[in-house]
Design a protein around this nucleic acid. Structure first.
Lengths: 123, 123
DNA sequence: TATAGTGCACTAACCCACCAATGCACCACC
DNA sequence: GGTGGTGCATTGGTGGGTTAGTGCACTATA
C-alpha cells in the first residue's frame, strides 16, 4: 500500500479510516493500530500518524487514551450522517460534472447502468 | 472570484480554462487574457499566471505568440477525448463511492433522477 | 522610428505544509 | 519496581507555492 504523493499523507490516512468506518470494517470500541505500529507498517513517520490521529480525535471519530491506545468512538448516528453527507457530495459533484459536459439525464442513467457491474466493489 | 486557498492557484487557473473549453465557452482560435491582464483582474501575481499558461501550452491546450498573446489551439478531437476522459473519471469515482457506501444500483439511479433537476447547470 | 503591449527568463525572498528525529510522560502488566 | 508499549511535545529541515522585482525580446500600430 502506497500513498499518493500529490496529497498529504495524514489526510489520506484519515480517509482510509473514514472509509473503513463507512464500510463497517471498523466499529465503535475497536482499537486501531498504535501510532508506532502504523508508522512502521506503512513506512511513514510516527509524527505523520500522530497528526492524522489527532485530527480524527478532533473530528470525534476516535478517542485516545494515553498509554493505552486509540479507539473508535463514532456513534451510529454520526455514521449515518457521515454516510449521507458523503453520498450527497458524490451525487452533486457527479451530476454537476456530467451536466457541464453536456450529457442528458437519460444518457447518464444509461452510463451508470453500463458501468455499475464493471466497477470493483468498495475495498 | 476567489481561489481555493488549499490548492495551488496555477492549477485552479488551468482547471477554469479547461472547463471553459469543455463547455464551449472558449473555442480554438480565441485569444485568452494576457498574463498581465489576468493577473490584474484576478489579483494574482503575474508569475503565477505565467506558470499556468506555460503548463497549458505544454498540455497542448494553447499556443503563445511572443508579443501577440496566447491563443486556444485545442482541436475538436482533443476536446472529445478530454470530454470522454473526464466523464469516465467522474463515472468511475462516483460508482466506486456509492458502492462502498452500500447503495444498490436501483437506489443510485433513483437518486440521480431525483437530484438531476435540482442541480444548477454547469457554469 | 517610437511606443505600448505582449510573452519570457531569471533571481530572491517569504511562508507554510509536510515530514523527520528525539525525548518525555503515562499506563498496563509482570 | 521495572519494562515495554502507548500517546505527547518540541524542534528542525525541506520543498513547493506564491509573490516580488527586473530586464529583455518580440509584435503591432501610430
Amino acid at each position: 500500500m502506497d500513498f499518493d504523493a500529490t496529497r498529504p499523507i495524514y489526510l489520506q490516512i484519515i480517509e482510509l479510516y473514514k472509509r473503513a468506518l463507512l464500510t463497517g470494517e471498523l466499529k465503535s470500541g475497536d482499537k486501531i493500530l498504535s501510532q508506532r505500529n502504523y508508522a512502521e507498517q506503512y513506512k511513514v513517520n510516527p509524527n505523520t500518524v500522530q497528526r492524522a490521529y489527532r485530527e480524527m480525535e478532533a473530528l470525534g471519530l476516535v478517542e485516545t487514551l494515553r498509554g493505552q491506545g486509540t479507539f473508535v468512538t463514532v456513534t451510529k448516528k454520526q455514521l449515518r450522517t457521515m454516510k449521507e453527507e458523503t453520498a450527497e457530495n458524490a451525487l452533486h459533484s457527479f451530476i454537476y460534472e456530467m451536466k457541464t459536459l453536456g450529457f442528458t439525464l437519460a444518457a447518464v442513467l444509461t452510463k451508470v447502468q453500463e458501468n455499475w457491474e464493471k466497477e470493483a466493489n468498495g475495498r
